[in-house]
């Protein structure tokens, strides 16, 4: 029994890290641009396809492919900000509806290019780590390790660079940030680019575990959505806490009850939190 608990704990932390990568991008885009980005999952899907193209078609090393995916996603994000989202900066609702349209375009574009069938991704590592009775596949450990590295890198960027400070200032107060010389025309595209890059990186990391198809974006979007609501829209510490919580809840309920029960419990939790405390567990109050 204690081994089952330990195993659930480890699985929960792995899941939580992955959810966190999705959720931080989602919450960053909301915090900076006030856009609820329903296309976020499609950028996860595009990251997975970018990794597939890099590794199997071009024969590049996995690490280089991931780096290229992130660079490509930042550029794509800046482009999407310019073409789709910029006109809706002062209009949260229209920006969100536009993201629904963007999601349809991206998903069906991928369907047109790659077809509906799931594509196999060559596994990067094989075998398992054994700690006592616990089993941790090496492929999952790799995804976890790289995920943590990317998250730490993102944290350092956000807390200790000029751009990062500008981004945080913009999240707190747009007018005051602009007064202090934060330039929205640079920081907005960068913010969306970074948010999308985190989703794409998660897609690239998950591709070897879950395979690649045009439809894989839906689940990560839902998870990001749940995490961000629980943690508070726009709050990064809240997202960190909620992602770990969600990972653990899912892992424990699916070990001890059932997987569909886990889904219902988390969605009921989301509805409850929205009703009782719309700003989330750690979010700031609505202004």
């Amino acid at each position: 029994m204690s081994f089952l608990i330990a195993q659930s704990l480890v699985n929960g932390v792995i899941l939580g890290t992955l959810y966190l990568m999705m959720a931080i991008g989602f919450t960053l885009v909301f915090g900076v641009m006030r856009i609820v980005n329903f296309a976020h999952g499609e950028f996860y899907m595009m990251g997975a396809f970018a990794a597939l193209i890099g590794v199997t078609w071009l024969g590049l090393p996995y690490a280089l492919t991931l780096a290229l995916t992130v660079a490509f996603a930042i550029l794509l994000g800046a482009l999407v900000e310019r073409v789709v989202f910029r006109p809706f900066r002062s209009d949260e609702l229209s920006g969100m509806i536009a993201s629904l349209g963007l999601a349809m375009i991206l998903q069906n574009g991928a369907l047109l290019l790659f077809g509906p069938d799931p594509q196999a991704f060559p596994s990067m590592v094989s075998g398992v780590f054994r700690i006592g009775e616990m089993i941790i596949p090496k492929s999952r450990s790799l995804a976890l390790g790289v995920g943590v590295v990317i998250l730490v890198g993102f944290y350092v960027f956000l807390m200790h660079t000029r751009f990062g400070r500008g981004l945080r200032a913009l999240v707190q107060d747009q007018e005051v940030a602009a007064l202090y010389g934060v330039r929205p025309e640079i920081v907005y595209p960068l913010g969306l680019g970074l948010g999308i890059a985190l989703a794409a990186a998660a897609g690239g990391l998950m591709a070897p575990l879950f395979g690649v198809s045009p439809f894989i974006g839906a689940t990560p979007l839902l998870k990001a959505f749940i995490v961000v609501i629980l943690g508070g829209l726009g709050s990064i510490p809240g997202a960190a806490l909620a992602a770990m919580l969600l990972g653990l809840i899912e892992s424990f309920t699916s070990s001890f009850v059932s997987a569909s029960a886990a889904d219902i419990v988390t969605f009921a939790l989301v509805v409850g939190v929205l009703l009782v405390r719309p700003s989330g567990i750690l979010g700031r109050g609505e202004s």
């Binding site: 609820v36 949260e92 609702l93 219902i264 969605f267 509805v271 929205l274 009703l275």
Partner: peptide, 24 residues
């Protein structure tokens, strides 16, 4: 009591909850 994007988000969650509960 919720408005704007928060109402959209809770209705989005409820639609998903409806699907999951019906499947159960």
């Amino acid at each position: 009591r919720l408005c704007g994007v928060y109402f959209v988000l809770i209705t989005f969650a409820l639609n998903e909850l409806f699907r999951l509960v019906m499947l159960e």
